[in-house]
């Protein structure tokens, strides 16, 4: 049974001082699911991501990734376990080319990251896989350009390329459409749709049209709690959800 569950969160709680940012959240994501995390700003969605990836230590509760307990595990343990994420605020390497950005991602799951002597540039396994990842997000033509010469929309796609390059089992996407124009949104939507189905996705997104089109199921959070869960019709019909979104 456990093999079919990608992510299991039980009783997750995080206090910042007196504030309960996350309050006894339970979440079960089956393998292959595309789950949308919905909720107004401050609902605790990104905090939940940070708790899953070990950027924050939970006050209480547990996280299991494919049946393995990863509660409180430091974030550098995530990548080897097949957990990748993107950031709402662009978090890329400004002094490097696009290909070099992806190489740093590939290096993160390679033992060569500890070698003080092995030259990385020119190694086939890195070069080819970096290019393949860039191709996947439609940036292969710009592989050798410095990051500074790319548009914001391209940076958003590179964010996803860095995560995809590691061939993760579970991918957390934090507002992958934030700040994009209409056309760019469609491009990134198509890109996310093209992600292989065996990669489980959890998505935070405010663009309801795109998000609902992408997601198989939806979890609604409010004030650090899960208030509703289900498919699109169930969530839309839920009175509490209506209340939150009409109020805000």
């Amino acid at each position: 049974m456990t093999a079919e569950i990608a992510l299991q969160i039980n009783g997750m709680t995080k206090n910042f001082g007196g504030l309960k940012a996350i309050d006894r959240v339970d979440l079960t994501i089956p393998k292959g699911d595309r789950r949308l995390l919905l909720g107004p700003n401050g609902a605790g969605k990104t905090t939940l991501f940070n708790l899953i990836t070990g950027d924050l230590k939970p006050t209480a509760g547990s996280v299991q990734l494919f049946g393995r307990d990863i509660t409180g595990l430091a974030s550098h343990h995530c990548a080897p376990l097949g957990l990748a994420r993107t950031y709402q605020i662009i978090t890329l390497f400004p002094k490097n080319t696009l290909a070099e950005n992806v190489v740093l991602s590939l290096l993160g799951i390679s033992p060569l990251r500890w070698s003080p002597i092995s030259r990385i540039k020119g190694r086939k396994e890195f070069e080819e896989r970096a290019r393949a990842a860039l191709k996947q997000v439609g940036l292969d033509a710009k592989a050798d350009r410095p990051l500074g010469e790319t548009s914001y929309g391209e940076k958003r796609r590179l964010e996803i390329a860095l995560a995809l390059a590691q061939n993760p089992s579970l991918l957390l996407l934090d507002e992958p459409l934030a700040g994009l124009s209409r056309q760019e949104r469609l491009d990134v939507q198509a890109l996310i749709e093209s992600i292989p189905r065996d990669i489980t996705l959890i998505l935070i997104e405010h663009d309801m049209d795109v998000a609902l089109a992408l997601a198989d199921s939806i979890t609604v959070m409010y004030h650090g709690r899960v208030i509703c869960e289900g498919d699109r019709a169930q969530v839309v019909a839920d009175p509490r959800v209506k209340e939150i979104y009409l109020a805000s």
């Binding site: 990548a79 978090t91 890329l92 190489v103 290096l107 590691q166």
Partner: peptide
């Protein structure tokens, strides 16, 4: 080298490097 690139990455984006 791998370690050298890793070090330069931690200089520019420590949080991302951890996640990677």
């Amino acid at each position: 080298s791998g370690l050298g690139l890793s070090l330069q990455g931690t200089r520019d984006q420590p949080r991302r490097m951890g996640m990677l």
